[in-house]
Design a binder for these strands. Structure first.
Lengths: 217, 217
DNA sequence: TTTGCACTGTTATTATTTTAACAGTATAGA
DNA sequence: TCTATACTGTTAAAATAATAACAGTGCAAA
């Protein structure tokens, strides 16, 4: 009777926060802390302690009264929930400034989630390494994705190549796409798609800054 | 009785979508379309037509039956809502790969929201231009922010400089901060803060890819 | 040993966001 | 001129997410 927790029904927001909790916990671990209180996590994440406790309740983790949560245990548990046990390989298509920033930042950070290849059309970049990641010609996209069992594709190509790139990724059997270009793409429902346009975030901030200023008057 | 719409109470999610609608509308405008249906916008944004119509209702915009929404008018209206009439200046601190990617992408895209300066500590970068944006020494941060009336700061510095950078921005009188580093910061409540960690997005995708795979079995 | 305190864990409530239902209407075609 | 169609706009309902309320508990100080 495998009564393994059914993490499938965790709220989307909780998933995001679990990732953020882990990030914070890893920092605390580096600082030689062994336990942490819900209100400490909450402060780092700019949320309430209740929300932290509620999230942890949902994943079935119990802390110790007056001592808080064991940091290492919690990191491990979050890992079993959001990480793929066998690891998951990702690739970045478009080794421009953004692509290189991502490679540099992501590589080596999470051993269950690795960037294993980059792609570009520029001959100066092809066959070079960036932060230890090999850059291939996009012509080899399908082959490398298959060979290296890549499941997630991060699109950082110039806007006019976005749609074609996404299509090739889908055809190559990719399961998740993160599109950092401002051009929206369409994918079959079996591919998980996340689109992030930096200008949207910026405009949102601008809106609330404006609102705050109007308030003052 | 200035019954100007009170956009202050628009849902957060609607604000985000308005920015995205405008992005999509601008593309359609380039393609010489004059009108667009709610279901067309919806398809681009991967949402339902109902949600589009509801958002537009909230901002008080009316389309034409059987003709849809006038693209230019809608772009203009969204502009009056999310843009600051006098424009809003922003700056990027940290002209590494990510900073340069942002400058290149954002500069010239929205005339009411401009990157007007960059900052770095590297002497090779200081006093150079990147995509037309002047890079200054961080030593001049406070002065330039005041002189150029900068309201929004985008942090793309190395992780260990995040907290100090945020503090200086706050002290310099910045009103909104977008933190792209993985290190969370604290700001007073009068500063609007948005934090974005790319690894969170990626881990979220990994989670749902994993879920989909588990499903198959 | 008792009382207050500082935590966790859970249920209940409220707020927010999305989705559904449907009323209204101009156009096109019969 | 009647009817079906293809839209918009609005209200109602449902789903999701956040917050509040509070019960439980063990330590610590008196």
């Amino acid at each position: 009777m495998g009564t393994k927790k059914n993490y499938k029904h965790l709220p989307h927001k909780t998933i995001e926060r679990l990732s953020q909790y882990r990030r914070a916990l890893l920092i605390c671990l580096d600082n030689n802390k062994s336990h942490i209180f819900s209100h400490e996590i909450a402060k780092i994440q700019h949320i309430t302690p209740v929300q932290v406790r509620r999230d942890l309740m949902l994943i079935g983790y119990s802390g110790t009264l007056r001592k808080g949560y064991n940091i290492q245990d919690l990191i491990d548990l979050i890992g079993t929930i959001i990480d793929n046990e066998e690891g998951l390989n990702a690739t970045i298509i478009g080794i421009g400034n953004l692509g290189r920033a991502l490679i540099k930042y992501l590589s080596g950070k999470r051993h269950k989630l690795e960037i294993v290849a980059g792609f570009d059309t520029n001959p100066d970049k092809i066959n070079n390494e960036f932060s230890g990641i090999q850059c291939y010609s996009v012509e080899q996209l399908e082959k490398i994705i298959k060979d290296k069992d890549i499941k997630i594709g991060i699109i950082t190509v110039p806007e006019d190549q976005t749609v074609e790139t996404a299509q090739r990724l889908v055809d190559a059997g990719i399961k998740g796409i993160l599109n950092y270009t401002p051009k929206p793409v369409e994918v079959p429902e079996y591919v998980y798609l996340e689109e992030y346009d930096m200008i949207t975030t910026l405009e949102k901030i601008a809106f609330y800054v404006k609102m705050a200023e109007d308030q003052e008057k």
